[in-house]
Write a protein that binds this DNA or RNA. Structure first.
Length: 566
RNA sequence: GUCCCCGUAGUUCAAUGGAUAGAACAAUUCCCUCCUAAGGAGUAGAUAGAGGUUCGAAUCCUCUCGGGGACACCA
């Protein structure tokens, strides 16, 4: 965690109370200050659990079971809250009184980031290139983490960053000029609006595939310079500039359409053309101290920090990706003065990013202190082939959405985009961020198993129960719990802890796992306990209502909408 | 070659150094007069290998094997 937002207390209320009590007991009995590390164990063991006794055993040179016994005796002395017993090697298992458990159900979630300013950068597709499956994956991750942070009270600014200058643009421009037969911007009108994005993607593939030819490579290098010059001179009217800006707009128009489709909204699109001058300026100011000249280029020697040496300014005097990142970092800081900056990128970027961040930290440490990187893997289809944007055999983001739609139509006979989109989002978020993810369209839309539609369905079903009740008062207070009700209530009470974990680690998969488990517990309850037309109807409706609200909150954090009916 | 990440049931994934390694799908055996069975209850099945640290290791360390990524003017 970063410095400015270091949480001094990340525990939920119930956790905090137990934590405090156990700390006091340990000081009183053994004169030891120790973090109880309270966890939620399996139901058979209790509601909360701590391993303090095991960890104290070494320090005190005493039997852990004996220590656990002493502590649990003192915990028991306050029976309004909990019962405690010793189990296993020396775990202390705590069982809340029904009253305490019911109280825990009302606990609001953490507001750890209240009034903090957070900049979330994610998605980052490049104009002049294809918006591929990986962009969809990273977008869904970024959006969910944004929502996780927002839910704790932060103001989150979603920003996007793309390369509208650089060699890849030059490659696309080379192919465009080739296709148009020269600098003829008028001819661009011949490309139908619906095909523009694909046309640009094809141009990139063509340019990239021919860049091995040394003559064409030289032309592309020339175009690269020309594109930078165009920005330096704010040229918008020369034929070359007209082609550039038109194609650039096409890309951004397509991005906007796409994000709308997946229900994500960026407040700002940073472009490389906008940050490279600032980057060059900052780097040139540190030549000799942080960066150094080598072979005519400006580099950062990463080896002394276990990183690689990377070029920041080329021999041509042009900024590389690294230099632009330096500029972007300073621009974001200037524009938002954030408490926390989060950047979501693919794993392959990580090692470049570390070099960039390390170099910045040497002359502006405050810049990187509050910056956090989240790295994720790549998207694959089951038994999938390797993809390469250079070769053009790439899975587009739109293709992935189509696959989900098709699967949803076939398996569920549904055309509801809320279901197919929810299926993709959930499928991407249910695994821990970091590794590659295999996207199976059929599995993702399945109503059986751990899927988005399964949770969506569970919620619509829960709501349907409440809507069928003759009367329902959400304000009633439950006074007692039957065993089956208690199991459900116990699971419901875990939500704030799970949310807290997902916030601490920026890990949406905890939410997914919990929601699925919650549905399982609910279904088990529902199987053998009537809600409507039952003497316990009021209490059970209340539990169903809490269940629905948690599912709603959880799905909202995942960015998954819920249809009215399924 | 150097550095980084990864290796868990047939498959896709979980597991703050903690209890009997949890699920889902697939397989298999049961259970629907009932609030949406799109469900529930079972059975079978896994930590790549070898050492080490620890009261305790899927998790930390070393090595081996296997997969992916990064290694100077691309992003």
């Amino acid at each position: 965690m970063n410095e400015r937002i270091k949480p001094n207390d990340i525990l939920t209320e119930m956790n905090k109370e137990l934590d405090q009590r156990i700390r006091e007991i340990c000081i009183k009995l053994f004169d030891e200050e120790i973090d109880p590390q309270i966890t939620r164990p399996e139901e058979q063991f209790g509601d909360y659990s701590t391993n303090v006794a095991l960890r104290l055993a070494g320090k005190l040179g005493k039997n852990p079971a004996w220590i656990a016994g002493e502590i649990s005796e003192h915990l028991k002395s306050n029976q309004d809250l909990a019962d405690a017993n010793v189990a296993g090697a020396g775990f202390i298992n705590i069982k809340l009184s029904d009253q305490a458990l019911i109280k825990a159900l009302e606990e609001p979630s953490s507001m750890l980031f209240k009034d903090k300013t957070v900049v979330m950068e994610f998605s980052d597709p490049n104009p002049f290139k294809v918006l591929h499956a990986g962009h969809l994956y990273t977008s869904i991750i970024g959006e969910s983490i944004s929502r996780i942070i927002e839910a704790s009270g932060a103001k989150v600014h979603r920003v996007n960053y793309g390369g509208d200058v650089g060699l890849h643009v030059a490659k696309t421009m080379w192919a465009i000029l080739n296709k148009l037969g020269g600098e003829h911007p008028d001819k661009l009108n011949q490309i139908p609006a619906g095909e523009r994005s694909q046309w640009l993607a094809d141009c990139y593939v063509e340019g990239a595939s021919k860049a091995d030819d040394s003559k064409i490579a030289t032309e592309i290098t020339g175009l690269n310079k020309k594109i930078y010059q165009l920005h330096d001179k704010s040229d918008k009217s020369s034929p070359f500039a007209k082609i550039y800006w038109t194609a650039r707009d096409w890309s951004y128009d397509y991005f906007e359409d796409f994000y709308k489709q997946i229900d994500i909204k960026f407040e700002k699109y940073y472009a490389e053309s906008q940050v490279y001058k600032l980057g060059l300026e900052k780097i040139k100011g540190q030549i000799g101290s942080v960066y150094e000249e080598s072979d005519g280029a400006v580099v950062f020697r990463g080896e002394k920090d276990g990183l690689h040496t990377r070029v920041f300014i080329t021999r041509e005097g042009l900024p590389t990706y690294e230099a632009k990142e330096v500029g972007l970092a300073f621009l974001k800081k200037a524009e938002y003065d954030f408490d926390l900056s989060v950047i979501v990128t693919a794993n392959e970027i990580m090692q470049y990013m570390q070099v960039v961040q390390k170099s910045i930290s040497l002359f502006a440490p405050e810049m990187v202190e509050n910056t956090r990187h989240i790295n994720h893997g790549v998207v694959k289809l089951p038994g999938g082939v390797k993809m390469s944007s250079r070769k053009g055999n790439i899975l587009k983001a739109a293709d992935l959405i189509d696959l989900a739609k098709e699967a949803n139509a076939q398996q569920n006979n549904s055309k509801d985009p809320i279901v197919s989109l929810g299926a993709i989002k959930y499928a991407f978020l249910k695994n821990r961020i970091g590794g590659d993810t295999i996207y199976d369209p059929d599995q993702s839309v399945s109503l059986e198993g751990n899927s988005g539609p399964y949770i969506q369905y569970a919620l619509t079903r829960g709501k349907s129960i409440i809507s069928k009740a003759d009367s329902f008062d959400s304000n009633i207070t439950i006074k007692t719990l039957e065993p089956a009700e208690r199991s459900l209530a116990r699971k419901l009470s875990e939500y704030p802890d799970v949310y807290q974990s997902s916030l601490n680690e920026f890990a949406p998969h905890y939410i997914c796992g919990y929601l699925f488990e919650l549905c399982q517990v609910f279904n088990r309850f529902y199987e053998s306990n009537r809600v409507l037309d039952d003497p316990r109807s009021k209490e059970r409706l209340k539990l169903v209502d809490i269940y629905c609200r948690i599912l709603e909150k959880g799905l909202d954090i995942l960015g998954v909408e819920v249809p009215e009916k399924m």
